[in-house]
Design a protein around this nucleic acid. Sequence first.
DNA 1: CCGGGCTGAGAGAGCGCTCTCACAGCAGAG
DNA 2: CTCTGCTGTGAGAGCGCTCTCTCAGCCCGG
Lengths: 336, 336
Amino acid sequence: MSERGERPTLEAVARLAGVSRATVSRVVNGSPKVAEPIRAAVRRAVEELGYIPNAAARSLVTQRTDSIALVLPESASRVFSDDPFFPSIIHGVSQELDAADKQLVLMMTNTVGGYERVERYTTARHVDGVLFASTHGVDPLPGQLHRQGIPVVVSGRPLGRSAVPYVDVDHIGGVRKAVRHLLDTGRSRIATIAGPQDMVAGIDRLDGYRAELKGSDRRSIVAVGDFTRESGAAAMRQLLEDDPLLDAVFVASDLMAHGAITTLRELGRRIPEDVAVVGFDDFDISRFTDPPLTTVRQPILELGRELARQLLRVIGGEEVPASVVLPTELVVRASA
Amino acid sequence: MSERGERPTLEAVARLAGVSRATVSRVVNGSPKVAEPIRAAVRRAVEELGYIPNAAARSLVTQRTDSIALVLPESASRVFSDDPFFPSIIHGVSQELDAADKQLVLMMTNTVGGYERVERYTTARHVDGVLFASTHGVDPLPGQLHRQGIPVVVSGRPLGRSAVPYVDVDHIGGVRKAVRHLLDTGRSRIATIAGPQDMVAGIDRLDGYRAELKGSDRRSIVAVGDFTRESGAAAMRQLLEDDPLLDAVFVASDLMAHGAITTLRELGRRIPEDVAVVGFDDFDISRFTDPPLTTVRQPILELGRELARQLLRVIGGEEVPASVVLPTELVVRASA
DNA sequence: CCGGGCTGAGAGAGCGCTCTCACAGCAGAG
DNA sequence: CTCTGCTGTGAGAGCGCTCTCTCAGCCCGG
């Protein structure tokens, strides 16, 4: 087991075990057609030398790398401030890849030349497949890779036409439950703080709000933020200017909801007595706001896992559905 | 540029450009000793065929992989709940690696068999170097890899003896500034909520508290948490039982400080009038607590970057210092 | 005008593995 | 006893690249 620089090769194992390289390769890769005594001898030699296969040599011939790329195309600040969205995605993806014994290569397109780097790296087939998290607007790269026959799965329904399989959550269903809850609890002036309208998550959540409101006689009152706390605070201020008498607000993200709560506090509104607040995400932190936030829970960890599972299926040559949509649910706490 | 399955090889480029494989290799790798006209011809052929070098083939001969592993050895929940510590580390590491055109392979040891996977993968030299983030207790793996000559840098001063270079922040200095601030503002009964005592971050922050208090005539009042919000809330309750008259508390992490604030509120204490609270971390979220949290800022993003830089130096064969310690600073807000 | 030195290009070996193909050895059938 | 048909093992050819070594061609000095 003691290794000093010189790593043992298949050749060395073969020599020690008194067999050919091919046979060692068979044993290492678990081929069933090796007689038991020989298999045991090889195993012993492997153990004794501390042999570990050379991945580069293996990839060279198998054309597999046993690693997959997770591309985070968001702007730097968004990806890793205190928004736990991407960390959860990473975590979920990692869990499934670990189980499949694949490596996770993390790539960001937010740095200088990041996009080109990702393009070069992925088209070069340095990975067996590529996962895209939450694309903004219309990103041509996933489709491009897909057309080149590289396994790709994206998170979030892509804007525009796309043949790339995706995994998303039921934004609209979740939002409708939230708005319905506000209606059912007697709120009459229900506003919304929407997310960025170049992202499906932003668009769908606004659509859900409008759709559920349409059934009632309430009019919609809309402000737009960018999913950050600051934008939520600003949007809330705007909404109160537009309609000082509003008594409820559905906010398209928890972080924005926190911002909105801060603003409501500053302007002397009680929550939920004067204004009911519902968020979207169910981040951990939302259980600790004052008051605890009623919100729409989306299963982010599960989203990451499903993403990885779909990709592994594509890589394995299985057929996968064009889309998988995970359920969302309303979590009622004190804010609404 | 259009590729259909068959990826062009060096050979193909060489043929098209009318030169040898060796020459194409030289051009691709930027060797200076190729005549300009030939260099141009090769460039053109590369462009035309959309040639991208095969990483596996290259690694096979160079023994380099141009990728490094970042190992997150924390427990699953800790790594990716709403604690932005690891995301920031990842972000910082990623920035530097991108700049150096290296790939980031993320590994977690929290899953079943995770530790073995990391051990196998890293000792197999599938990566050029390994970064360990925040090891708990005494992890033998970094030292083991180091002894095998694999470039390693760890985040956080290791417990016990270790020859592995590390990057850490000045916990003690930061804490002393925090406690001094409490003393200077006339607090007389200053308690602390310490972090886990099997982690250097937990130990050092408690040491700093004790060291600064020793100079005054105040006695120490200590409770221990595990860096989570919940543990902070519980520890605060404990402290108030131990000394109902305490008028300040230094909390060893922002998340625990949030928990402590919640408890203080519930028990009717005003912040900072009755009890001053100082945290440690300066997470984004701490600007938005009520009241905004006075805390010790540690440069986590920079920690990640420095980690990567040191590792790249080791890989490059440069000498690196046994340790790099980044400064911490007190950020005074409303809570103390 | 010839030879030495230098520069730039090519030939070829080999990195460590997988996988096809050939074949040895043996069982069972004729 | 020979022949067929297995099963299990070995030989050997690459996978696509880098890098050393060799050599062709040119410049310049003697």
